[in-house]
Structures are given as C-alpha cells and as structure tokens.
Computed example of a mutant assay.
Amino acid sequence: MTEEPYRARRAAGGAPPPASPRTEAPKKEGARRRGWKIAGIIMASLAVLVIIAVVVAFSYLRSLQTTFDDNRETIEGLDLEDDSAYRTPEGTVNMLLMGTDSRGDDEQDYRDATGEGAERSDTMMFVHIPADRSGVYVMSIMRDLWVEVPGEGMGRVNTALGLGGYELAVDLVEEMLYTHIDHVAVVDFEGFSDLTEALGGVYIDNPHSFSAGQRNPAFYPEGTIRLEGSSALRYVRERQSFPTGDYIRVENQQRVVRAILERFLSAETLSNPQRIYSVVDGMTPYLSVDEGLNAETVAGYALDMRDVRSDDIHMFTMPAGEHATTSAGAEVILPDDEMMSLLRTSLAQENMGGFMDYIELVEQHENGEFGVPDEAEEDDLDEEEDEDPDDAGDSSASGR
C-alpha cells in the first residue's frame, strides 16, 4: 500500500495553518510587484494631469497673448528711444496714458468755446512705476494747464496732440516733468463701456449727486454707486454739471480708474480665467500702444508687480495754480511752479512716496486739520531725496 504524502488539515476554526517561508515568499514578491505597478499607474496618471494642466495654462496664456497682440493697434512712427533716457533711474517705468476725444454732448461746445478743432487728448495720465515695483503712481494732468509746448510756444496741454501728434505730446510731458517716457497707450473712451461690462461692473463712492448729459440725462446719486457700460462712460465724460468742470471730471475719472484696477486685482477676477480673457478681449480693440508695449512686455511687468495690491496704487492730480485768462481770452490753469519743482526732484530721486506724504500734509492743512507744513518739513523731504539716489541704485533689480 502506497503511503499518501502528509497533507495538513484545516484547524477547527477554518483558518489555514501558517504557510512555510518557502510557499509565502513568492506571494510577497508578487504583491510587491502589484504594488509597484499600482504606484506606477498613479504616478503616470498624475504626470499626465500635470502635463494637461501645463498645456491648458500655456494655451490660455498663448491665447491671451495672441488676443492682445492681434487686437491692439500700434502707433506708427512713434520713437521713444531718445536722449532723455538718462533722466530716470535704471529699472523705472514711466508710461503716458491718453484718452481720445470724447463724444459726449459737451464736446462741440468745448471746441466752440476754445476755438480748437484739431484732435486733442481729452484725458492725460502719467504712470510711474519705481524700480523696486513697490507701487504704482498715477497722476492726472489737467488738459487746460497753460504750459510751454516744445517748438510751439505757450498753449494748453491737450493741444500738443493736434499740433504735433503723439510724439509732441510725449516731448511735452518729458519736458514738464524732466523725465523719460518708456511707453504710450491711447484709449478710446468707448472702451470704458466694454471694460466695465467685462468686469461685471465697478463700484465707486460718488461724493456729490449730479446729472450727466444734455439729452436723456443720467442721474448719479451721492454714495456708493455701481457703474457698468454706458453709465460708466457718461460718468467719466461729464464736465458741464460742475462749477469747477475739469477738476471734478478728473477726480471722477480717477475714481473709475481706481475702481477698475481694484476690481481687476481682486481674487474674484484673478481666479476667473474667462473674466480675464473677456477684459483683454474687450479692451484691446480700443487700445493703441507703442511698438514696444506688446504682450510679452506687459506679462513681464505683471510678473514684476505680482505683489502690488490696490492700496499700493496712488492716484493724484498734477499740481496746478490759479485760473487765468490769456490775451486771446482763453480760460486756462497756471502751473504751480514750486510744487512742480518738488515733483521733478521726487521723480528723479525715486521718492514719490515722500512727495505723496507732503501732498497729504498740504491737503490736511487746507482742510484746517493742523498747521502749515513748515520749511523744516520741506528740508526733511529734500534731505530724503538727496539720500535716495544711492538707495534707488542699489534696489534696481531690472532694467527697462
């Protein structure tokens, strides 16, 4: 009788007896191989997802770049490379923003009153970005400011465009501020309508109620109001409703520009790719820029200023003096020579923060809050500016 090999029986509980090392080892090796296989599949899937995300992001950025470069209009014949570049510290960026003639109800009345029939810059803003990218300074220039127009004699600021095109307008601002302009952007006011719509509307604090327009007037109550589309356009155009017409209009324009910037820099917008695309797509058809202001340049500036928030954007109006009447009977605004000198020095010394502090002191005094800024305070400001060139030179991390 042949003996059967011994076979272990199951224990009473039904569990198999422990396997010998010789029988278990192959099972562990197989499990390990299956584990590596699963991990490999997961890593490969993650890699595919990352690649897809990169492709989508790149495609989105390329789409934005293409939209900007294809839709923008380049200002022909504008050469910004001149001998004024030495006037600004390395790394700073100065930009001249101009708004084209409005088509509001008061446009022809203004031309009739001033005798100006040529193209004019209805709005002019000077934008200064320091080398350390610590903030953005946006200065409105009064269009009726009476200044020396290079090669043309005395005239209003906004006549430069009609007399010599964008190049003369640039030369005028460079000489007024003794600085250099790196870029120029011209915006058709009609673009305000599409831009505010793309942002889903903007909110401003309107200090005084008023009506805009001679025909079918729009009413803007005092307090927080929402502007979108045509309501935003009419708000920034209006000047006849105010006793100090252009001053109030400039302030209104500053409010809307600030509201647009705050809305664009908000987390709600920056986390919404479709809204960003809508803003770029809606605005660029109304935008004319110098040849150097392309999508790549804009993206570089945006990266440099990624930490800038709405509180870092400072808006103010170029210092101006008294109203006057020219020998020809034109109503103009005279410049404030003392404050203009301080402004030029502050720009050259990269001390616009000190200049803004001084403006605040002056405004507080004018409002009766406390005493006049004395000569000692002015001397302190001058001393700060004298020290700033070395600091500015050390902090310049990027060239223009």
Rank of each mutant, 00 (worst) to 15 (best):
G223S: 10
A218T: 14
R215F: 12
S266E: 09
E268N: 10
L265S: 10
D307M: 06
A328D: 15
S231R: 15
A232N: 08
A330S: 14
A212M: 09
P221V: 02
I276E: 07
Y286W: 11
Q214A: 12
S230I: 10
R263S: 12
F219Q: 07
D312A: 13
A267T: 11
E322R: 11
D311S: 14
M318Q: 00
E251G: 11
E251W: 07
Q240L: 07
S231I: 11
P243M: 02
G292A: 04
T224F: 07
G321M: 05
V298R: 01
D336M: 06
Y247W: 13
E262R: 12
P319A: 03
P217F: 01
V332F: 04
D304P: 00
T269R: 04
R309M: 07
P335S: 05
D281M: 02
R263C: 02
G300W: 01
P273R: 03
G223C: 10
M315V: 15
Q274G: 11
I313V: 15
R234K: 12
D337W: 05
L303M: 10
D246G: 06
I276K: 08
G229I: 03
R306E: 11
Y247E: 11
Y277L: 06
R249I: 03
E291Q: 13
H314G: 00
I276P: 04
V279G: 04
P319V: 04
I225G: 08
G321T: 10
A302V: 08
Y286G: 00
R275M: 15
E222W: 01
L261M: 15
T326Y: 03
R226K: 14
R239C: 04
M283D: 01
P273V: 05
D311N: 12
L287R: 04
A295K: 01
E262W: 00
I276V: 15
E296R: 14
Y247I: 15
L270T: 12
I225N: 07
P285C: 10
I225K: 08
A330E: 15
T269D: 03
T269W: 04
I333D: 01
I276L: 14
Q274M: 11
A232S: 13
E296T: 14
V250P: 00
Y247N: 11
D337A: 13
V279W: 02
G292F: 03
G292W: 05
T284I: 06
N216H: 13
Y220R: 02
V332Y: 06
S271C: 02
A267D: 09
N216Q: 12
R234Y: 08
D337K: 08
P285R: 09
E222N: 03
P217R: 04
Q254Y: 04
E228A: 12
E291L: 04
D246I: 05
F316N: 08
V298I: 15
H314C: 02
P319M: 06
I333T: 14
Y286C: 01
V298K: 00
A267Y: 09
I225W: 08
R255M: 15
L303A: 13
Y235A: 11
T317M: 10
A330L: 15
A302T: 10
Q253V: 07
E322S: 14
Q274S: 13
I313E: 07
T326W: 02
I225M: 11
V236Q: 02
G229F: 02
Y235F: 15
V257R: 00
A302E: 00
